[in-house]
Simulated scan of single mutants.
Amino acid sequence: MHSSAVNLPLVRRLEAVSFRAWPASSVIYDGSWQIRLTGSHPSKRINCVVPLDPSDYGNCDVRLEKARRRFEDFGRPLIIRETTLMPPELRAHLYDNGWTVFEEVKVMTADLVNAELPETMAHLPTHDIGRFVEASLKVGNEDLSLRSPIAEIVSSIKPNLGLFIKEEVEGDPHATVICVQDNDLAGVLSLEVASAARRMGVGSEILTSALRWARISGAKTAWLQVVSTNVPALALYEKFGFEEAYTYRYWGKDNS
Rank of each mutant, 00 (worst) to 15 (best):
F102H: 14
F102R: 05
E104N: 03
V105A: 00
V107L: 05
V107K: 09
V107R: 07
V107D: 00
M108P: 02
T109W: 12
T109H: 01
T109G: 06
A110M: 08
D111H: 13
D111L: 14
L112K: 13
L112H: 14
V113R: 08
V113G: 01
N114V: 07
N114Q: 08
N114A: 10
A115G: 12
E116L: 05
E116V: 09
E116M: 12
L117H: 03
L117S: 04
L117P: 10
P118E: 15
P118H: 15
P118I: 15
E119P: 01
E119K: 11
E119Q: 10
T120F: 14
T120V: 09
M121N: 03
A122M: 13
H123P: 03
H123A: 10
H123I: 15
L124R: 13
P125K: 09
P125S: 00
P125N: 06
P125E: 07
P125W: 13
T126D: 03
T126Q: 07
T126R: 05
H127D: 06
H127M: 01
H127A: 03
H127R: 06
H127I: 00
D128Q: 03
I129N: 08
I129A: 06
I129L: 10
G130Q: 08
G130T: 09
R131T: 02
R131G: 05
R131M: 03
R131I: 00
R131Y: 11
F132K: 01
V133R: 04
V133I: 15
V133K: 13
V133A: 07
E134N: 08
E134H: 09
E134T: 02
E134A: 04
E134M: 08
A135W: 15
S136C: 07
S136V: 11
S136P: 03
L137D: 12
L137W: 09
L137K: 04
L137V: 07
K138R: 13
K138T: 15
K138L: 14
V139L: 02
G140F: 14
N141Y: 03
E142K: 14
D143Q: 09
D143F: 07
L144I: 11
S145I: 01
L146A: 05
L146H: 02
L146E: 00
R147K: 11
S148H: 04
P149I: 09
P149Y: 08
P149F: 01
I150E: 05
E152F: 04
E152N: 05
E152K: 03
I153E: 03
V154L: 01
S156K: 04
I157A: 11
I157K: 09
I157R: 02
I157M: 05
K158M: 15
P159D: 06
P159E: 07
L163N: 12
L163D: 12
L163R: 14
F164I: 11
F164C: 10
I165F: 14
K166S: 12
K166F: 13
E167T: 04
E167L: 09
E167I: 12
